[in-house]
Amino acid sequence: MRADGGEHWISGSDSSHDSGDDPSSRFRTLYRSTFNDIHAYAIRALSPDQSEIDDVVAEVYLVAWRRIDELPRSPQDRLWLFGVARNVVRNTKRGTNRRLLLVHRIHRQPRVPDGSSEPTDVDVTAALARLSPNEREVMQLVVWDELSVAETAEVLRCSVNVVQVRLHRARRRLKRWLRAASWDPDGVAAGAVPTGEVAAREMEAEDRQ
């Protein structure tokens, strides 16, 4: 009987050494060393909807376990997990418009003047939401998940050059929109951070330049 051979089983105890090639130990080590990153990624990617975070994280590690033989060695395994998380998040969000609806609500929130010319978090969140998905994703991976440009390229399976271009465009647009918001304290409500249609037109115009 092959009950003890050929299949990888995760040990339920913590007594095993977290090193070496034993798949169970390796998986346990991977979980402990990357949980924070993947959990945070899921929060950011799904924010503000909190209901799916645990499901997404569990699914990411289930995928990792099923494909433990394909998992690259550290530190590439962390990036591999980001790639899996990205796909899981994408599947989770597919078919729902919750995020868009919430962005819409944020956009309509009247801004409370606080005497500061600094953009608020609401401004930044609204501005991020108006970026193209590709640009927003690059921005978030680099700034929030603190991946380098090269690491981001690996997660997104694209070239470093593409990441640099998207990052540059994202910063340029955010700069313009947030400057507009800070110049006009009522800007968010008045549309200083452009709505989707306006943003799309602006982006098209910028890209033509």
Partner: peptide
Amino acid sequence: IDNLVKRADPV
């Protein structure tokens, strides 16, 4: 810009 975005990190 990065600092502003960082500040808005939901985590």
